[in-house]
């Protein structure tokens, strides 16, 4: 179940942000930000947030610190989605 959500999130990431990295090459604990990670930035997070809200049926309301924690990597994102999802 958890592996499926991880895969779904990776697919969503690649699709919504037009990443060149294939979904199956994204590690669960690979950082989303920074050069050692996927290199996302705040504009990517905005796009991703809209995609997450639509796909999983919740509204993101995070302060800066929570946002950094949730969008650390696929694993942290999956934990958050599991907790908040309505569909």
């Amino acid at each position: 179940m958890q592996a499926t959500l991880h895969d779904e999130l990776k697919g969503l990431l690649v699709e919504s942000l037009k990443l060149e990295t294939p979904a199956d090459e994204i590690g669960d604990e690979q950082p989303l930000f920074g050069e050692e990670g996927l290199g996302l930035d705040s504009l990517d997070v905005l796009e991703l947030a809209v995609a997450l809200e639509y796909r999983f049926g919740f509204q993101l309301q995070l302060d800066a610190e929570e946002g950094r924690r949730v969008f650390t990597n696929i694993k942290s994102l999956a934990e958050f989605v599991n907790e908040k999802r309505t569909k």
Partner: peptide, 10 residues
């Protein structure tokens, strides 16, 4: 298809 709230920012 998804409504204004889910429009793509990029």
């Amino acid at each position: 298809e998804r409504g204004e709230r889910f429009a793509s920012p990029q």
